[in-house]
Every structure is written in C-alpha cells, then in structure tokens.
C-alpha cells in the first residue's frame, strides 16, 4: 500500500497480443509452405482439420458467445457445398466459389434468422434442425443439382491432382485463418462487448442500451458465412456432394463435440478440439459404427465432469492465453493482478 503511483487500470492485449499477431502470421506462412514439404496424405488430413476448425469456431461463436445453441448449422455446410456446385455450373472457378458460397450463405441466413429467432433459447436448437431439413429437402427437389443422389464437381477434375490438392489446402487454410481472425476481431469489437453483456444478463444488457437482436443476428450471419465457406471446402476436397451427407446432422454433432471437448466460450478451445478430433478421426474413423459409439459415449462424461472442456483445464492451471480477449485489471500493486472477464 506504500508509494502508489497510479490507480488500477483495465488492460487487454499488450505483449500477448503482439506475440499472437506475430506468431499467427509466421504460423500461417509456415502452414502455407507445407504442401512443398509433405505428401498429400498429410495435407488432406490438414484440410479436414481446417474445415472442422472453421465450423467449430462458428458454432462456438453462436453457442459460446451469443447463447444461440444450434443443431442446424449443417444447413449452411450443405448450402455452402451446393453453392460452390451451382457457381461452378455457372462457370465460376470452385476456389473462388468457396468465398462466394460464404456470401450466399450469409444472404440466405438473413431471412432464416427471422424465423429461427422466434424460438426461445433451448427450443432454438431443434428449430434450426427443422430449418436445415427444409433446405435439405428443397435441394433434393432441384434436379439440376443432382436431386437426391447428388452430383460431382466436374470443373476440378481436369486439373493436375497435385496442384488441385495444393490449391484445396491453401483455400482450406485461408478459410480457417479468416475464421480465426474474423472471430477475434468480432469479439474484440463492439459486438464482442455487447455479446459479453448479453451472456451475463440479456434483459439487463437490453435495458443498458445494448441492441440485443442486431448483435445476435450479426453473429448468426457470420456463423452462416463461416460454415458456408467450410462446406465449400468440403465439396472441393471431396469433388462430389450428396444431399444426405452434406446436410447431415453429423456436422452439427462434430461441431458440438469439438467445441465442448475443447472448451466453449474461448477461441483456443475449438482449435484444440478440432486438432484432437481430426487425429482421432484419421486413426479410428474407418471403424465406422464402433468409432461413433465410443465418440458418443465420450460426450457423456465430458458433459458431466468437464463442462469447460480441455482448454478450461489448461486455463485454470496456467496463465497461458493465445487470444487476448479477456480484460485484466492491473492493480497498482504488482501482486494483485488476476484474470478477469
């Protein structure tokens, strides 16, 4: 208490933010060089990691920050994949189509949000699922997109497979990087502050002047765009699309599992979860039903005993934060600093 020079200060960023920004640029550059070093087996697994990470980040944005628990994000994975197919039929190169698909999904999500937001918090989950089914059934009706049996993305089949794999990898990397950066900027800005207030108390936030509806809608549109781009990467990497798998609720299952395993309400958690999930899938995915039984069974103890996920364990044990989103109060005395929300 002696020789206090200044009062407590609220800070965010500082040195960790500079590390993250610098490290992020180096990491993305290093990852971009990877196709020159390793064989396609590795890059294909990395593509899976990138689209799963992008989807998980989007689901985390919805559920972890905006309180919108959706079981219907496969709507935008499927629409994104089919948008790439449709743009490709119109003559747009698929690697450009991925970005247009993101835009198309955001446009479709706007009217959809007005129906979905009618449902109160918990029912929102199953309501979004019904909406995803509507898009699924509508796509099946369109015979120009292959109807119920799906269609191949023929415009990419003429390209040299090595080049195609590398371009797919770079597109997937770019989508994942944009999702990370987008989440980070969104959450650090005004919307992030509004979402924090809404998460703590929606009514109080509204009465304090936070525009609750627009903040949630912004997140919903952003998540639709991210999942649309991820769906675009899925079709580009698999070269064909079938409605039942593109609109499968399994996508939402994976997102939920990754986010809750990794740690909801953080940006580190979904990335950690996606990395783990990809590794497990690479090694055990071929076992089919048994793999899913074990995965489903793993959900239950995670839900009961690890509600903050694996990153929650890391964050409790260490002061390590990759993404400086939380504000810290730095007291004048150097011992009193502690993590804050």
């Amino acid at each position: 208490m002696s020789a206090v020079q200044q009062g407590p200060a609220v800070e965010r960023g500082g040195r960790p933010a500079r590390y993250t920004a610098g490290g992020g640029v180096v990491l993305v550059a290093a990852l971009a060089y990877l196709p020159y070093l390793v064989d396609t087996g590795v890059t294909q697994a990395m593509v899976v990691f990138f689209y799963l990470a992008a989807m998980a980040l989007m689901w985390n944005l919805l559920a972890g920050y905006a309180g919108l628990v959706s079981v219907g994000q496969q709507a935008y994975v499927g629409l994104g994949a089919y948008a790439v197919l449709q743009f490709s039929n119109w003559g747009v190169a698929p690697f450009l189509g991925v970005w247009l698909a993101a835009l198309a999904c955001a446009v479709i999500a706007l009217p959809t949000s007005f129906a979905a937001f009618r449902l109160r918090a918990d029912y929102f989950a199953v309501g979004t699922w019904a909406i995803a089914e509507v898009y699924h059934l509508l796509v099946i009706q369109d015979s120009s997109l292959g109807g119920g049996s799906g269609s191949a993305l023929t415009t990419l089949s003429g390209i040299d497979p090595v080049l195609r794999d590398a371009e797919t990898y770079w597109t997937a990397l770019a989508v994942a990087a944009v999702c990370v950066l987008g989440c980070f900027l969104l959450l650090r800005g005004r919307v992030g502050l509004a979402l924090t207030a809404i998460r703590d108390d929606e009514t109080a936030a509204g009465s304090a002047g936070v525009r609750v509806g627009p903040a949630k809608r912004t997140v919903y549109l952003a998540a639709a765009a991210g999942c649309g781009a991820a769906g675009g990467v899925v079709i580009v990497s698999q070269l064909n699309v079938a409605p039942d798998s593109a609109f499968s609720v399994q996508w939402s299952a994976s997102m939920i599992f990754i986010v809750l395993l990794g740690g909801i309400g953080t940006l580190e958690g979904p990335l950690l979860g996606a990395a783990l999930f990809t590794v497990v899938q690479q090694y055990f995915g071929a076992d089919g039903a048994w793999y899913l039984i074990v995965l489903g069974a793993a959900c239950v103890p995670v839900a009961v005993w690890l509600p903050r996920g694996l990153w929650g364990v890391v964050a409790r044990a260490t002061p390590l934060r990759v993404f400086p989103l939380a504000r810290r109060v730095r007291a004048a005395s150097p011992t009193a600093a502690g993590p804050g929300r």
Binding site: A253, I256, L292, A297, C299, A303, V304, P307
Partner: peptide, 13 residues
C-alpha cells in the same frame, strides 16, 4: 449445454 451434449452422445451411441 451439458445435458444437450449428454443426450446427443446417447443418441449417437
């Protein structure tokens, strides 16, 4: 969220 995840896990199992 945890009950949602738990019932979802049961559904898959």
């Amino acid at each position: 969220l945890p009950p949602l995840l738990a019932t979802f896990g049961l559904s898959v199992v």
